[in-house]
């Protein structure tokens, strides 16, 4: 007991109590079976979302409720965590997301409503930085990435580089920090996310008919699947990718998800299986009594819950059949 891990006792117990309020599969089932979007909302108002929903006047504005909830949960976990910097690493993804949205909106000359008010840097600050072209107030790594994006865009005029540069910065930073702070569980999470991102990139690039050169430039390093091996797959039929990953953890995911993608042209099953895969990984740390694992798991559980609510409500508003909503619902964490 060289390091006192019991500093996590308070936060973990609190998160365990909070977990009991997470929506269960049965509640989603009832929402799916509701006759209208409003009925589905009513089911949701029987849960922890009641107070926020009471103030909602139009069902089409439900995104604000979800965004508020996500921000609240992040702030809460950050506040109770004895090492908030570990939770901050998880918030970085939202900074990157917001930067992507802002840059693309600027390059395409549009305004976007896809910003998420979570992250380590205030949204207003990010917005200001991108519109004013002044990145001095951003953290160093983001600043360098932003400058790189501007430089590259001046030359190539291709908004795609925004995603490429920012994803690389995100995962380089996360892996480096996880190692520095000796957080193997978080590193395991990021490595898996890199692998899943790379698999999706591979399929997408393959479908766009782009070159192997391009692919090896956009694949993220530091995953468990070697970049060269993945890049080589662009010239092979899909079956060889499936057989290459046959003995890896990703066998089922690729076997079902990738096959569906290439046959039906829809990535939604692969996206769902990827989310379920991460959920299964995080569940391994669910009962750690003293450690960051349950906190990370709870945040992810909340993100998945919000994603599921969005899937159901959007589906209900657009009057999709129950079956097609159901098949997109992610596994819940508890």
């Amino acid at each position: 007991m060289l390091i006192d891990d019991t500093i996590y006792g308070y936060a973990v117990a609190r998160v365990k109590a909070l977990e009991t309020h997470l929506l269960e599969q049965g509640q989603f089932e009832r929402m799916i079976n509701a006759s209208t979007g409003e009925e589905a909302l009513k089911v949701l108002s029987e849960s922890g979302y009641a107070a926020a929903l009471a103030e909602l006047d139009d069902i089409h504005n439900f995104e604000t409720v979800l965004a508020d909830e996500l921000r609240y949960v992040f702030n809460l976990v950050m506040k109770i965590s004895p090492l908030p910097e570990l939770i901050g690493m998880l918030a970085l993804r939202y900074d990157i997301h917001n930067l992507k949205v802002l840059f693309k909106a600027r390059f395409l000359g549009i305004t976007s409503d896809l910003l998420i008010p979570v992250g380590s840097v205030e949204l207003a600050k990010l917005e200001n930085a991108v519109t004013e072209d002044d990145f001095l107030l951003l953290p160093e790594k983001l600043r360098r990435a932003a400058n790189q994006i501007i430089e590259d865009f001046m030359v190539n005029r291709d908004p795609q580089i925004v995603d490429l540069i920012l994803d690389r910065v995100l995962y380089d930073q996360l892996i480096e920090e996880a190692r520095e702070r000796q957080a193997p569980f978080l590193e395991g999470l990021f490595v898996r996310q890199i692998d899943l991102t790379n698999l999706k990139t591979l399929i997408r690039v393959k479908q766009m008919g782009l070159s192997r050169d391009f692919l090896s430039r956009v694949l993220l390093p530091k995953g468990t699947l070697a970049v060269e091996k993945l890049a080589a797959m662009i010239e092979e039929p899909l079956e060889s990718l499936i057989s290459m990953l046959d003995i890896s953890d990703y066998a089922d995911l690729v076997g079902e998800g990738v096959r569906e993608w290439s046959e039906k042209g829809s990535a939604s099953l692969l996206e769902k299986l990827s989310d379920n895969y991460i959920t299964a990984y995080l569940r391994e740390g669910k009962w750690v009594p003293f450690g960051v694992e349950p906190l990370v798991g709870y945040l992810w559980a909340k993100e998945i819950e919000i994603k599921n609510i969005r899937i159901v409500l959007v589906g209900k508003i657009n009057q999709l059949p129950a079956e097609s909503i159901r098949e997109r619902i992610r596994d819940v964490y508890v």
Binding site: Y10, V12, A13, R14, A17
Partner: peptide, 14 residues
Amino acid sequence: GIVGQSACGLISED
């Protein structure tokens, strides 16, 4: 002391 910390976490919600 250890149990007390955990207990506080639980009591703050329940």
